[in-house]
Amino acid sequence: MAGKKPAARARYAAGLTAGLVLLALAVAGGLAVGAQPVPPAEVLAALFDPDAPHASLVREVRVPRTLLAVTAGAALGLAGAVMQGMSRNPLADPGILGVNTGAACAVVAATVLLGTRSLQAVVWWALLGAAVAVVVVYLLGGRGAGRGTPEGLVLAGVAVTAVLGAVVSGLGVLDADAYGTLRIWSVGTLAGRELPVLWEVLPFLLVGAVLALAVAPALDAFALGDEAGRALGVAPGRVRLLGTLATVLLSGAATAAIGPVGFIGLVAPHVARLLTGPDHRRLMPYAVLTGAGLLLVADIVGRVIARPAEIQVGIVTAFVGAPVLIWLIGRTRRNRRSASTSASRKAVATA
């Protein structure tokens, strides 16, 4: 047994190292690939020499875009891991449960109705919208016959997303000029984003990440249920509060930066869980790397698939994530039926 732990730690460290190498390759691709390809040697020269060929393209367009993709993807992956652990729901995701759409709706409403233009105000409105959406979805998902089930929360999230999406479209009718500036952003895009956007949201993302990592050990005990968690010294109310705050900060700030991008928070934790198991302290670093890599690769695919035009990253992630969601719903139902059948057989055998 003693020999297994160092071996497991070595495998875990090797996996993280491999993830970092793959992310570095994706970053290199993000700097080189686009409507105008730039050879790797010229990318390297442009990073260090402002007068080099393609320096303006690489330094002013692709570096900010790539950094935002990595940061926002990492935030969404981490937010998804927290939501899935906190709700004990394998289908939880900031996009599916309406959190991203809530943030986007608040930003559009503030822009159209209040004339908000400053980036700082946009971030605060996004956080407020994300918080309200979280509360509404969990209130709706806790009612009725589907109370507390993964499908019930997903249905509540879909309903809230649909309503908020209609509100966003309606606001566009009120002020077409203001909405025109937000039309592409509301789909989820990294095009045209600049470094000041990253610096504005980075403090919120860092605080959210610290909170998420702080609740990671408690989420493992929390997964056993409220009563078992209390027996292990975990306060469920405190875990829910800190976990919700982390989710709001991570997903709200990411949405303020690049718009509502779905499915990264759903897919990244599941990929990480396949590699690490259910331990959240080991899972979360992998979810960060996976989320960052997925969003960056999706952005690269969007740049080249319709060249010289490009497809917004939110559309690319939807094409990838929707089949994953359908598969997860089917697997969740099969697991529940299997558990129910097993419990019935045990009851009959005992009787």
Rank of each mutant, 00 (worst) to 15 (best):
A235I: 00
A235W: 01
A235H: 12
P236D: 09
G237I: 01
G237H: 00
G237Q: 06
G237K: 00
R238W: 06
R240Y: 04
L241D: 02
L241V: 08
L242H: 00
L242S: 00
G243S: 04
L245T: 14
T247F: 00
S251H: 01
G252F: 05
A254V: 03
T255D: 05
T255S: 03
A256R: 02
I258D: 01
I258Y: 00
G259P: 06
F263H: 05
F263W: 09
F263E: 06
I264K: 01
G265Y: 09
L266E: 03
L266I: 07
V267F: 00
P269D: 10
P269S: 09
H270W: 09
H270I: 07
V271T: 03
A272L: 05
R273M: 08
R273D: 09
L275P: 01
D279I: 00
R282C: 03
R282W: 01
L283G: 10
L283K: 07
P285E: 12
P285V: 11
A287Q: 12
V288D: 10
T290R: 01
G291W: 03
G291Y: 04
G291T: 08
A292H: 09
A292W: 06
L294W: 04
L294Y: 09
L294A: 06
L294I: 14
L295N: 12
L296I: 12
L296S: 07
V297L: 15
A298L: 05
A298Y: 10
A298S: 15
A298Q: 04
I300C: 08
I300G: 02
I300K: 02
I300T: 13
G302S: 14
I305L: 15
A306V: 15
R307K: 14
E310V: 13
I311K: 14
Q312V: 14
Q312K: 13
G314L: 10
G314E: 08
I315R: 07
V316D: 10
T317E: 10
A318G: 12
P323R: 09
P323A: 04
L325W: 14
W327R: 15
L328T: 09
